[in-house]
Design a protein around this nucleic acid. Structure first.
Lengths: 235, 235
DNA sequence: ATTTGTGAAGGGTTTCACAGCG
DNA sequence: CGCTGTGAAACCCTTCACAAAT
């Protein structure tokens, strides 16, 4: 299953469920819901009770039509002539994204990046809890980062079982990443966020999303070059 | 323009250039070329001289047809019945991505994440050079990280001009990010890589790509939930 | 009067399957 | 015979424009 990008492939099975189940929400929509959620949370904190698709779209950096189409996939939660109730939308999007449940996360690899991730506030909020930090280097084991003790890689399997970890974050060097990933998967982890610069091999039912700095830079380089050529050609 | 993901919007202008210029390469293809490049570099290091679309696609985690279609957009660089020459492909993809040129990068914000980015090896290689690290906190100014001295935000404009910075990396808290972005843009920076959790407002000609940990986690949460529901429903 | 929700149209991307070349 | 390069089909996503609801 993805980088944004990240790529996640999901089985295109039409969900054989009882009753008149709503059509599955598209991948493109799912990728934007967290953005809407963040913007809406900001509105809620600012005491704003209702927003129009125009306002919300503006703040989220998308077109109003796209926004309405996205939201229509979760249900009819707006009021014509008025807009959307901020709190209610926050709740509905949270529910659809599965954020009403709690997920335990293990971070593997405590280098510079692992450090930064461990301290990242985004984990604490909204349903994600860092169950453990893990590293292969005995020199790092025992160190405390962001209130968590670093534990040795050997304990990975135990930690995953004890804390019912469902999401693994790989922040190791590329050379160790596939091995770590295999171990996560063999313990039943089906969601992986990969920061190592390589393509992970996983079974179909496992979702991988990758964050890859050098890919992002290279995409920017392409557009820089294109802009330079256009500017030159326009002379 | 835009996160994987990241999103980059480009003006769909058909490149008004002289001669029979090849059709513009699609955004989806551009996002995959860096992956192919990395895999090919690995092959080259391993002494492999030629690859088939089947092999390369396998290693890059895509289908062979997609790979061939992608490569066909850069030109006819394969040999029927044989495959692709690894070194030649590396060169062609590098050229298309603009990696034969050099880009100066400024990293703004030297917290945990900025630290990690400064130390990231991906910058050094392949045409990217970190011109400077910048932070607003006077306590951090003067500190040396990965061989670079941290300079104060006030010098941002000077640094950009002196080093002809073309790519800005924003690793500040969300509250400072739009301001930093505005200053980068006003100095002529047209490519921004944003790690701050907010939607940046930029003029049309500026490309922004975002890397957002909590969005990635929320997308994974959605799929975790979906998998749990399917498993439950299949009983 | 205002704004949502949505069919229909349009554009882009992926997949197929095979012609063409070595 | 093997593998690339590519039209055509299928699929997905976005945008438009308006009917429906308040």
């Amino acid at each position: 299953m993805s980088v944004a990008m990240s790529g996640g492939e999901s089985s295109p099975r039409p969900l054989p469920r009882t009753g008149a189940r709503r059509a599955a929400i598209s991948e493109a929509t799912v990728a934007r819901l967290p953005v809407y959620l963040r913007v809406l949370t900001g509105f809620a904190d600012g005491g704003i009770a209702t927003v129009s698709s125009e306002q919300l779209a503006q703040a989220a950096g998308v077109g109003p039509a796209k926004l309405r189409k996205d939201l229509s996939h979760l249900g009819s939660y707006g009021t014509r002539g008025v807009g959307y109730d901020v709190d209610y939308l926050v709740y509905q999007i949270s529910r659809v994204l599965g954020l009403t449940q709690h997920y335990s996360v293990v971070i593997v690899g405590v280098g510079n990046l692992g450090h930064a991730l461990a301290g990242y506030a985004g984990f604490g909020t909204r349903g994600f809890r860092v169950a453990a930090l893990v590293d292969a280097d005995p020199a790092r084991v025992g160190e405390t980062i962001a209130g968590l003790e670093v534990r040795h890689s050997d304990e990975l399997e135990t930690i995953i079982k004890d804390h019912e970890v469902s999401i693994g974050v790989i922040a190791t060097p590329a050379s160790a990443a596939q091995d770590v990933c295999d171990r996560l998967v063999s313990c039943g982890v089906t969601s992986v966020l990969n920061f190592a610069p390589l393509v992970l091999n996983v079974p179909d039912q496992v979702d991988v999303r990758k964050v890859d700095l050098s890919i992002e830079l290279q995409i920017l380089a392409f557009h820089e070059q294109r802009k330079a050529l256009v500017a030159q050609g326009a002379s």
